[in-house]
Design a protein around this nucleic acid. Structure first.
Length: 108
DNA sequence: TGCTTGACATAAT
DNA sequence: CATTATGCCAAGC
C-alpha cells in the first residue's frame, strides 16, 4: 500500500472527467499538495498500467505529454486521449484552453 | 545519511 | 509561444 500522499493524488486523478485533461498542478491542488506538482508526476510514475487511475488525462502545464522517449507510455497516453475525443496539435499538444478541466470543490 | 535525479510549475527573457 | 533558470518534495543509489 502506497503512502497516503499517493492515495490522495490517485483520488484526484480519478476525479478527472472523460474528454478532459488536467495538469499536474491541478491534481496537486486537488490532492492538497498545492505547489508539489512534481510529486503528482512521481506518483503516476509509480502507478501500474493495470491501475484504474486515468493517468492518461494528466499532462503538464504546457498541454504536452512529458513522458520521455524510449518508452511507449507517451504514445499510449496520446491514443487514450484521442479515444476521449481530445484533439492534439501538430506539435502533439492539447489545447488547454478547451480541454482543460476546471476542478470543482463541491463535486464528489 | 547525503547527493543526484525526476511523468512539473512559475517567473524572466 | 519557446527557452532558460530556480524551487519544491520524494525516490534511488
Amino acid at each position: 500500500m502506497p503512502s497516503e500522499t499517493y492515495e490522495r493524488i490517485y483520488a484526484a486523478v480519478r476525479r478527472i472527467p472523460r474528454g478532459r485533461v488536467a495538469t499536474y498542478g491541478q491534481i496537486a491542488e486537488l490532492a492538497g499538495l498545492e505547489g508539489h506538482a512534481r510529486q503528482v508526476g512521481y506518483a503516476l510514475h509509480a502507478l501500474p498500467e493495470r491501475s484504474d487511475v486515468p493517468w492518461h488525462r494528466v499532462i503538464n502545464a504546457r498541454g504536452e505529454i512529458s513522458l520521455r522517449r524510449g518508452g511507449d507510455a507517451h504514445e499510449l497516453q496520446r491514443l487514450l486521449l484521442q479515444r476521449e475525443k481530445v484533439k492534439f496539435d501538430r506539435r502533439g499538444r492539447v489545447d488547454l484552453g478547451r480541454f482543460r478541466w476546471r476542478a470543482r470543490r463541491d463535486e464528489g
